[in-house]
Design a protein around this nucleic acid. Sequence first.
RNA 1: GGCCCCAUCGUCUAUCGGUUAGGACAUCAGGUUUUCAUCCUGGUAAGGGGGGUUCGACUCCCCCUGGGGUCACCA
Length: 485
Amino acid sequence: MNIKTRFPPSPTGYLHVGSLRTALYNYFYAKKHNGTFLLRIEDTDRERYVAGAVESLIGTLDRMKIDYDEGPVMKNGKIVEKGGNGPYAQSARLEIYKKYAKQLVDSGYAYHCFCSKERLSELREQQQEIKQTTKYDRACLKLSSEEIKTKLESGESNVIRMKIPEGKTTFHDEIRGDITIENQENDDQVLLKADGFPTYHLAVVVDDHLMGVTHVIRGEEWISSVPKHVMLYTWFGFPLPTFAHLPLILNTDKSKLSKRQGDVAVEDYFAKGFLEEALENFVSLLGYNPTADREIYTREEFIEHFELTKINKSGAVFDVNKLLWMNGQYIKMLSDETFVAKVKPFLKGEVEDDILRRICVIEKTRINLLSEITTVIDSYQSITNFSKEMLVWKKSDSEDAKLQLKNIFEFISSLDDSVFNNLELIEQAIAGYIKDNGLQNGNVLWPLRVSLSGAERSPSPFELLWVLQKQESMKRIEHAIKIFT
RNA sequence: GGCCCCAUCGUCUAUCGGUUAGGACAUCAGGUUUUCAUCCUGGUAAGGGGGGUUCGACUCCCCCUGGGGUCACCA
């Protein structure tokens, strides 16, 4: 069988991290089985229309390097469609849904409903008051065919609703096994809205079938509506796809991951300086672990080991701390050149290329977020005030610190400019100086480092000399010496 | 509230009847280092409760408890 999976986001203007994982899992599954993966735009809610959302979504998927065989793509700044099962935006498929909805009405599985929204909400309120389950009361089912005909002919606003039959519906979920739900739990779901747009339920079934989708992999929040989908598949005579409902991604308090409790958009994570690869790795691990002997996996490994039956059933808390750690791991794996390039968009002011490169080399093991580069650069460019106590190493004293600074100042000024272009040479020179004079590392390096950085914690003095260069370094040491007088 | 799903360290997970219940993040301690970071070593830390089934249950079954999801002309 030719496997086909799909990713059908609603174009909200950003990609939710839960959606990202859904997209990834669908992608992994298709790739593993040499199948196809398609992107479909579920834009049937005109009230939630966001201008430019599709473009932004495509951009984000592109940035995540999640490519699809079918669906809308950008070409010369415009959206064009790829694949032979389009259109891939549901708003462009209205006639199709109308046809299928009508077919259901004609065969008695669905019916027109003329009830106003006001009546419906009143009804709901009444039911809630007497603690009844809120369901449509099927008032319009009692309409005679003549009545329906006249209402329709007079152009009265109406929707098409499913006529949920008695009994119960059982379906199989690859992750959870068989699930049975009483049909009476379902409301007579609206399939076609008054504005002619379908609801999710109609559109997803029709499209998945027409587009040849074999595996429906989506979030757990859809489980309760699967019976409706199963009924639709059955009424249309469509073969059932394989269902797999992924565990939810949760807030720290275990509720469904939401905007209120932190960032949910992958674009937000980009903006904070997370790397695409780290995000993919982290989010993919929320639900299963390919081999369980490590945390860092390549996409190829995720694909190779991916199995629906290995996915966890319980929800996973999104732990930013671990993401941060993972991002740091990915940053360390970056080449210096790539790191510099990735960091550039975060720069506030101009930084000379060569200096930036040196700073990046030093900071690669020190930051977990690309955006941290800005504060780090500030610390190289300006120095905060420090007391003379700070210049004294814990195993030394004020007199010695001052002496050491004076001596190292002399030594550094004797060094050739070219030495400062090579981190190793700097280190060799200073180490040699310490050894030749029979000194202790701490006595020299501590005050040196503090005078260069102005901080108790900082990169090594060698690294600082390398970045600051001779002139600036001497200036700072001189300034430190003055503090003693 | 009805229905559905779920239940291993604080968190992500491994263990698909027999393990000293493993790894990772976080945390704590130690090492390396002039400091910080990196890195290395080690520690603390888990099978919600009660019944079964079995020679033997974290693992299978039932109940309870707890958590979550869902109940729209939103997806």
